[in-house]
C-alpha cells in the first residue's frame, strides 16, 4: 500500500515536471514570436489582440479551467482527438502561460533601440540574421524571465489542471486528493524540494537585474 502510494507520487512528480518543462518552452516560443509580431502592428490592433490574450489573467482561474475543459471535450466529441490527459494538460498550461511570457518580453522589445536592428543590416546582416544576432540577445533577459515565470506558474498550477487533467495525476492534484485523508510525508518532502526550486528560480529572476548592473565592474577587471 505504502509502496503503491510512493509510485503514484513519483508518477505525479514526473507528470508535473514533464508538463511544466514542455509548456514553459512552448509558451516561450509562442510568446516570443507573438511579442515580436505584435510590436510591428498598429497600436489599436495590438491593443485589441493583447486585451483578448490577457483574458486568462483577468478571468477567474476556475472559469479558464472549465472553459478549456468544455473546449477539449467538444473537440474530442467532434474530432475524436485531444482526450483529457497529458496533452490537454500541457496545452492548457501553455495557454495560460503565454500572456505572462508576452508581458515580460514586450517591454524589452519596446525599450529596444530600433536602430540596432538597422545597424546590423547596415553591417551586412540579412533581416532574419539581424534578428538573431542583435534583437534576440537584447531581449533575452525578458525571454528568460518569461520562461522561468511560465515554469513556476505551471509547476504550481492546480485549478486549471484539475479541470483539464482527466485521470492524469499531477503533484498538486494528488496533494488535493490527499488533503482529506492527510498529506503523506513524501508529498511534504517533495513540496519542500519544489519550494526550493521555485525560490531559486525567483531569486535568479530578481538577481539578474542587479547582476547586470554590476557586470560593468566585473568587466573592468
Amino acid at each position: 500500500m505504502e509502496l503503491f502510494r510512493d509510485i503514484q507520487v513519483l508518477k505525479a512528480l514526473f507528470n508535473t515536471v514533464m508538463i511544466s518543462v514542455t509548456a514553459s518552452i512552448l509558451a516561450t516560443i509562442i510568446g516570443t514570436l507573438a511579442a515580436v509580431g505584435l510590436r510591428k502592428l498598429r497600436s489599436s490592433l495590438k491593443k485589441a489582440i493583447l486585451t483578448v490574450t490577457n483574458l486568462p489573467m483577468v478571468n477567474p482561474e476556475i472559469v479558464t479551467g472549465v472553459s478549456l475543459m468544455l473546449t477539449f471535450i467538444s473537440i474530442y466529441n467532434t474530432l475524436g482527438v485531444l482526450k483529457l490527459g497529458m496533452a490537454t494538460l500541457t496545452l492548457s498550461h501553455t495557454i495560460f502561460c503565454v500572456p505572462y511570457v508576452i508581458l515580460s518580453i514586450l517591454p524589452k522589445l519596446e525599450q529596444l533601440n530600433p536602430s540596432l536592428y538597422e545597424a546590423a543590416q547596415d553591417l551586412g546582416c540579412a533581416p532574419v540574421k539581424a534578428f538573431f544576432r542583435v534583437v534576440l540577445p537584447d531581449i533575452m533577459p525578458g525571454i528568460l524571465t518569461g520562461m522561468i515565470m511560465a515554469f513556476t506558474l505551471s509547476l504550481d498550477d492546480f485549478i486549471i489542471s484539475y479541470f483539464t487533467s482527466g485521470t492524469v495525476m499531477t503533484l498538486p492534484i494528488s496533494i488535493y486528493s490527499m488533503t482529506r485523508k492527510g498529506v503523506s510525508p513524501e508529498i511534504n518532502a517533495l513540496s519542500a524540494l519544489l519550494f526550493l526550486v521555485v525560490l531559486v528560480l525567483l531569486l535568479i529572476i530578481n538577481l539578474r537585474q542587479s547582476v547586470r548592473e554590476n557586470a560593468d565592474v566585473v568587466n573592468l577587471r
Binding site: 513556476t152 504550481d156 492546480f158 498538486p172 496533494i175 488533503t179 498529506v183 511534504n188 513540496s191 519550494f195
Partner: peptide, 10 residues
C-alpha cells in the same frame, strides 16, 4: 507564495 497553494491551505 512559492509554497504550493494547497499545502499552505492544508
Amino acid at each position: 507564495m512559492l509554497m504550493n497553494f494547497l499545502l499552505r491551505t492544508y
